[in-house]
Computed example of a mutant assay.
Amino acid sequence: MGALLKAEFRKTFTTNLWWALLIPVAVIGFGAGWMGTSFVGFLNSIQQLDRPVPLALLSVAMSANFSTIFGALFGALTIAGEYRNKTITTSFLTSNPRSAVLIAKLILAAAVGAVYGLVNVLCASLGGLVGASQNIGQFGDIGDWLSVGATCVLAMVLWTLLGVGFGALVANAVLAIILPLVYKFVVEFIVSMALVSSNVSGIGPYLPGSAGNGIVSNLAVPLFIAAVAGPDEPDVPRVAFEILHVFFGGHYGHAWWASMLTFLAYTAVFIAGGWWASRRRDIA
């Protein structure tokens, strides 16, 4: 396994794929952080706010929810790309069993996904500092910020692992790129809108994309509202949560850990499917 892991890391870091997908993760993180704190500064210039508004918590959630797709694409292409280039043949022929290759790729994906998540959080923090002009009150409590940042890294790792399973399942580099993008930004959006006024709207939080987004947003939104409302304020109406969830992802009353468990189940299903397909697929 050690030699197989070394080979997987060497194959990854001697190609352009990992850093090419890291660039948009960094750009999205910086842009979201900068826009979030800049907007609070704009509001503060119009009317002096009586307490800090930690919009950076929501900004990092938004940046994570847009960036995780790049982790999924990386994971999918690490194995689907090998099927396209026929390099998977050597890996399968020199390892026994084939599942060892998949395990090595999952370990690689978890490591790279953690790097992607950390870069996203750090760039969002840097962008937030630039937009806030060093007014760190817009970041909220340091414990809240670290908690949201940790869920960002966790979400990125899980999306990257799901991508490996999906890439092993379809074994086609084109489909590995197109299908996740179309599903997350088109299909699930349409399905979610259709569910809003239906009798089965309760299944919304359990859709793959919603569950993945909820890992971060279902923590960030309540922390943001608690910080803005303050301990002396009456109960915040449900509509305030729902409006923020519309823009920043997640669902009212659905805990972040419930979203994590739901998405973890999807990840396990795709990995199992990829393992099954890899064992049965002929190689050439």
Results as ranks from 00 to 15, higher is better:
residue 145 W to T: 10
residue 208 P to N: 08
residue 234 P to R: 11
residue 245 H to T: 01
residue 191 V to N: 02
residue 211 A to H: 11
residue 183 Y to L: 06
residue 233 E to Q: 12
residue 193 M to V: 09
residue 149 G to W: 12
residue 191 V to Y: 04
residue 166 F to C: 10
residue 208 P to I: 07
residue 213 N to H: 13
residue 179 L to C: 06
residue 152 C to S: 14
residue 160 T to V: 10
residue 167 G to S: 04
residue 194 A to V: 14
residue 240 A to K: 02
residue 235 D to A: 14
residue 151 T to Y: 09
residue 183 Y to S: 08
residue 202 G to H: 02
residue 232 D to A: 15
residue 233 E to Y: 14
residue 193 M to A: 12
residue 157 V to S: 02
residue 148 V to Q: 14
residue 196 V to M: 14
residue 240 A to P: 00
residue 151 T to E: 13
residue 212 G to D: 14
residue 187 V to G: 06
residue 236 V to D: 01
residue 166 F to G: 11
residue 215 I to A: 02
residue 164 V to D: 00
residue 151 T to V: 15
residue 166 F to E: 02
residue 162 L to A: 07
residue 242 E to Q: 12
residue 181 L to H: 00
residue 235 D to N: 07
residue 215 I to M: 01
residue 154 L to K: 01
residue 205 P to K: 03
residue 155 A to V: 02
residue 189 F to G: 05
residue 221 V to N: 03
residue 158 L to R: 01
residue 207 L to E: 03
residue 183 Y to E: 05
residue 148 V to R: 12
residue 208 P to R: 06
residue 148 V to T: 13
residue 203 I to Q: 12
residue 178 I to Y: 00
residue 178 I to E: 00
residue 246 V to D: 08
residue 147 S to N: 13
residue 186 V to P: 00
residue 161 L to G: 02
residue 246 V to W: 03
residue 241 F to D: 15
residue 154 L to V: 14
residue 238 R to Y: 01
residue 200 V to E: 06
residue 175 L to T: 09
residue 151 T to N: 05
residue 220 A to T: 08
residue 161 L to W: 06
residue 236 V to T: 14
residue 149 G to K: 06
residue 167 G to V: 03
residue 176 A to S: 11
residue 147 S to V: 05
residue 239 V to Y: 03
residue 157 V to R: 10
residue 156 M to C: 06
residue 211 A to E: 13
residue 237 P to G: 04
residue 216 V to Q: 02
residue 146 L to P: 01
residue 245 H to V: 02
residue 190 I to C: 05
residue 226 A to E: 14
residue 222 P to I: 09
residue 149 G to D: 13
residue 234 P to V: 14
residue 207 L to M: 01
residue 169 L to C: 00
residue 190 I to E: 05
residue 231 P to M: 06
residue 187 V to I: 13
residue 178 I to V: 15
residue 173 A to M: 09
residue 245 H to L: 02
